[in-house]
């Protein structure tokens, strides 16, 4: 079946957007989506520098005990990071390496690192990408969807589509960025099928006095819309900008971590 065409719209549309009318009320220039995304990412990383932080994940489900994981995360660059599990005891020493679009997992109990896929979730509702990646601009191409307002606060709404051959965990996401300071507010993550998989709320920002009062994202709440009450709180602490040895970020380095 061919798409239907509204004849009146075809005739009238050129009139509605005729140069004379458009000149009277110039439309505001559309914000640059990539610039907005880069500014939003700046709350999650340190402008190309390598850094480390501690991450606590609290995985919550109704009528179940919370599961709390503590992780030490090392970010060499936007495409290379290392996540080392510290707690609980059953997970201690496990490690996740993200290098370019490769993901490896190593357990002290097994004999060698194994390649895993972004789909494999290791920590509650948080995917590997949620934990190991600290910027969107490396994995997704943004486009501007429009302005939005939530509770009288103005936001830019972006659509991010996974770059071809990237390690992006999601095929598409919608990201709301505050218009005044470019802080990420929330994101909806979608599967290939278009199904909403999860929503993340970027809940807390803190100034880091020991790093020039840089304002940093320190809490994300991930909510599963398909299962009421199932959510994971990710809390970041102890950010340190540090020189990191690239030899740690290899599969052979994983075996030496223990």
């Amino acid at each position: 079946m061919y798409p239907s065409v509204n004849v009146f719209a075809v005739i009238l549309l050129p009139l509605l957007v005729s140069p004379s009318l458009a000149a009277q009320e110039p439309a505001p220039a559309q914000p640059n989506a990539l610039e907005l995304l880069t500014k939003a990412d700046a709350y999650r990383n340190f402008k190309g520098k390598s850094f480390t932080f501690d991450l606590t994940l609290n995985s919550m489900e109704p009528e179940k005990d919370d599961k709390i994981f503590t992780l030490n995360v090392e970010i060499l660059n936007p495409h290379t990071s290392l996540v080392i599990y510290d707690q609980p005891t059953s997970e201690r020493g496990k490690a996740l390496l993200m290098s370019e679009n490769n993901l490896w997992f190593h357990s002290p109990h097994s004999r060698k690192p194994i390649r895993i896929t972004p789909q494999q979730r290791l920590l509650g509702e948080a995917s590997n990408g949620d934990v190991a990646s600290t910027d969107f601009s490396g994995d997704y191409m943004p486009s501007y969807l429009g302005a939005d307002a939530i509770d009288d606060v103005a936001y830019h709404k972006l659509e991010l589509v996974a770059k071809p051959d990237s390690l992006a965990t999601y095929s598409k996401l919608h990201l709301w960025i505050r218009s005044d300071n470019h802080k990420p507010y929330k994101a909806d993550f979608f599967a290939n099928t278009g199904k909403l998989l999860k929503t993340a709320f970027y809940q807390r920002y803190e100034k880091l006095p020991y790093l020039g009062d840089k304002e940093q994202l320190t809490a994300i709440l991930i909510v599963n819309p398909l299962s009421e009450g199932k959510q994971t709180l990710m809390e970041y602490a102890d950010f340190q900008v540090a020189e990191l040895s690239s030899s740690r970020f290899t599969t052979s380095g994983l075996r030496r971590l223990r």
Binding site: L103, R115, T117, P118, Q119, L167, A168
Partner: peptide, 12 residues
């Protein structure tokens, strides 16, 4: 040789 294909499949 090993490769990740999409976000669900790995081949080796």
């Amino acid at each position: 040789f090993s490769i990740t294909v999409g976000n669900q499949l790995e081949l080796h």
